[in-house]
């Protein structure tokens, strides 16, 4: 059994690499996009606000699986074709940006009006107020929900198997079917658990760091 596990590790690690790529690219792109959308959502530009609200509704109101299939299979019929990785990234980034937008919006709206007023009376500009006063407080507030989303994303990456991408999930399934042995499922489970454990510890430390001014 141990020999078998060692023999499949290289393939499984290759699958992890695809999974990690999807994960990191989604995080790196969707968090800034989500923040940008959140600023639009709390702005007083009515058209922008409503458009983003609609966008968030669509992205959160339909399954991520459907969105993946749409970008890969449906768009080519109107002449837009992406390779499977690009299609997957578009779906993941647009989907997660919608969730992050809502998280950041709630965070920004949780900052009391008095903070803006104090900054105003101290002569701070809008950008200074956001950068120095509002966002540092928002980051602390949103850390728990962002942590949740991030851990969900680790598991959601497995959805890319519908596009025939050789991520950890698909690699595992292929091995199980080839060898008539369910051990790869267990190994994959351990990989996912390790990834979520690392993230859990990371976010716990971040929360501790940011909550120092609460004590």
């Amino acid at each position: 059994m141990l020999d078998y596990i060692i023999s499949i590790i290289p393939q499984m690690l290759a699958g992890c690499q695809v999974t990690a790529q999807v994960f990191f690219l989604t995080i790196i792109l969707s968090i800034p996009l989500g923040l940008l959308l959140a600023f639009g959502r709390v702005s007083n530009l009515s058209l922008v606000k409503h458009f983003i609200a609609f966008y968030v509704w669509v992205m959160r109101g339909t399954p991520l699986m459907l969105q993946l299939l749409f970008f890969y299979f449906a768009l080519p019929s109107v002449g837009i074709r992406f390779d499977d990785f690009t299609a997957a990234m578009i779906a993941f980034v647009l989907n997660y940006a919608a969730y992050f937008c809502e998280i950041f919006r709630a965070g920004i709206q949780a900052i009391p009006k008095g903070q803006y007023e104090a900054a105003h009376t101290l002569g701070m500009s809008y950008v200074q107020t956001m950068r120095r006063i509002v966002l540092p407080q928002v980051f602390r507030i949103v850390l728990p929900p962002v942590s949740n989303e991030t851990i969900t994303l680790v598991k959601d990456t497995s959805l890319v198997y519908v596009l025939a991408m050789n991520d950890l999930m698909r690699t595992t399934r292929n091995l199980v079917q080839r060898d008539f042995d369910i051990t790869p499922f267990l190994v994959a489970g351990v990989f996912y658990l390790l990834a979520t454990l690392v993230l859990t510890v990371l976010f716990e430390n971040l929360e501790k760091h940011f909550s120092r001014y609460d004590q």
Binding site: G114, Q115, E117, A118, T121, G123, P136, Y213
Partner: peptide, 21 residues
């Protein structure tokens, strides 16, 4: 903005920045 911050303002609710010492 420059003229307004010739006046310091103290609020009923203090409005200190909680994330700063």
């Amino acid at each position: 903005r420059r003229i307004a911050c010739k006046m310091g303002m103290v609020f009923q609710q203090f409005n200190l920045f909680p994330h700063m010492t």
